[in-house]
């Protein structure tokens, strides 16, 4: 007896997998947390993306700190320098990717993650430039980001962010 599974796993049957889109574009927001990663994010923003938008939180200092109530305005800049409302941005995101450079102690990760937590948006943090820094410096950045990211990745080359975003259909 030829079972259903035996047929299903043949190359011929595999070719009959229907070829209709099985997902809608998702909104990915990529936020640089420091000047060095801002340069990388700026470069990425030049690429062609489905529904990715790129921001920097470097000039975040004027924004209110986490812990205040959520009607507060926290501010991001998009790369054209306009000011964006953090909560609005997070509310329309499917995934927020924070990019930080090794050796930094990103101050803004907390408030971004808090906004994501309220909106139940998944967070990922990528640490770049780990090759140029000592282990302790890297660990400091890791510790600063750990509470704020569901997925934390140390990438030795900057290329990885692009690869990851492509893989995630950003």
């Amino acid at each position: 007896m030829l079972s259903e599974s035996a047929r299903m796993t043949t190359a011929e049957e595999a070719r009959c997998r229907i070829d209709y889109p099985n997902s809608k574009p998702r909104a990915t927001k990529i936020i640089a947390l420091d000047p060095q990663s801002e340069a990388v994010v700026k470069r990425l923003a030049q690429g062609k993306w489905q529904q990715a938008s790129f921001f920097t939180s470097v000039d975040f200092d004027g924004a209110p700190r986490g812990g205040e109530n959520w009607s507060m305005k926290a501010w991001l800049s998009d790369l054209a320098g306009r000011t964006k409302d953090l909560i609005d941005e997070v509310a329309t995101a499917d995934l927020v990717v924070m990019v930080a450079s090794a050796g930094t102690k990103p101050k803004t990760a907390g408030v971004i993650a808090e906004a994501c937590g309220v909106r139940k948006v998944m967070t990922t943090a990528l640490i770049i430039g780990s090759d140029e820094h000592t282990d302790e410096e890297l660990s400091r950045t890791l510790a600063a980001l750990r509470p704020h990211a569901g997925m934390l990745v140390i990438a030795s080359d900057d290329d990885y962010i692009e690869q990851m975003l492509v893989a995630l259909r950003a």
Partner: peptide, 25 residues
């Protein structure tokens, strides 16, 4: 069940799949 060679052009990875994404990379 994915078929003899999984068609990865159709997959929708999520951020928890970063281990797989990094391994491929």
């Amino acid at each position: 069940s994915m078929g003899p060679v999984c068609d990865r052009t159709k997959e929708n990875l999520v951020s928890t799949d970063n281990g797989i994404i990094m391994a491929r990379h």
